[in-house]
């Protein structure tokens, strides 16, 4: 089932009098529960495409349809609500809140997504996901005391604790070694398949492409 569609998406950055078109009319369709990888050389526009799709910056032209709703015609508050409840994000770095424990990071995300779960259900949900990522023994730890791999696992848990429909991952394994990269990608694949989450991921790492259902190569602002 198609959940996310991009039509003729364009993005132009203007510096002074110079306008540079980074995305030159991208068309893309994502199916529910599938992982799509965006690959391409630096400057090809893949990160720009991901951040526009995720509602983190506006497009210059074109349409983005999420569940049939046109995101390009929404205001900031409507997009924020979608980001909070329907989208999940994993970045190159974990970007955890430094003064919250692992468990509190997940509580915060549930709160932000305005979950309908009560406190007991929230606690159970968090316990379940911590078990899934193998971090239940570290639930009271602060980010500073976690290893890079552990932090990224917590970041993934935070991205999906509220059961979003879409997961946007911008080089989620870039800061990890090869072994941890594989662990993290397996985790993303297993969780998104279990929870039927649609994933759009940017990666440079060719080994990670094995985990994707579809691969889209970007070149000079166009999807090939």
């Amino acid at each position: 089932m198609t959940i996310f569609t991009i039509n003729e998406l364009r993005k132009t950055f203007t510096t002074g009098e110079v306008a540079e078109e980074i995305l030159k009319g991208i068309d893309l369709t994502l199916q529910q529960g599938e992982i799509t990888a965006l690959v391409g050389a630096s400057g090809s526009g893949k990160s720009t495409l991901l951040t526009i799709a995720a509602g983190l910056q506006p497009a210059s032209d074109g349409k983005i349809l999420f569940n049939g709703r046109n995101m390009t015609s929404m205001n900031q508050e409507q997009i924020r609500k979608i980001r909070a409840s329907d989208f999940g994000f994993v970045f190159q770095s974990a970007h955890l809140v430094p003064f919250l424990t692992v468990e509190e990071q997940l509580f915060l995300m549930l709160e932000v997504s305005e979950t309908t779960l009560n406190k007991v259900q929230q606690k159970k949900e968090i316990a379940d996901i911590l078990k899934l990522i193998g971090m239940e023994h570290r639930k009271s730890a602060y980010p500073a005391s976690l290893s890079g791999g552990e932090r990224q696992r917590v970041a993934i848990a935070r991205a999906i604790i509220h059961k979003p429909q879409m997961l946007f991952a911008d080089e989620p394994t870039a800061s990890l070694d090869s072994k941890r990269s594989k662990d993290v990608m397996e985790l993303i694949r297993d969780l998104t398949k279990t929870l039927n989450i649609t994933t759009l991921m940017v990666t440079h790492d060719e080994e990670m492409l094995a985990y994707a259902d579809h691969i889209i190569t970007m070149k000079d602002g166009l999807a090939e």
């Binding site: 983190l56 924020r80 609500k81 980001r83 909070a84 409840s85 989208f87 994000f89 970045f91 970007h95 809140v97 430094p98 995300m109 932000v112 997504s113 935070r158």
Partner: peptide, 13 residues
């Protein structure tokens, strides 16, 4: 600033 940005990205008002 970085923290605020991330919190905004995940949907914090």
């Amino acid at each position: 600033i970085g923290l605020y940005g991330i919190l905004k990205a995940i949907g914090v008002k």
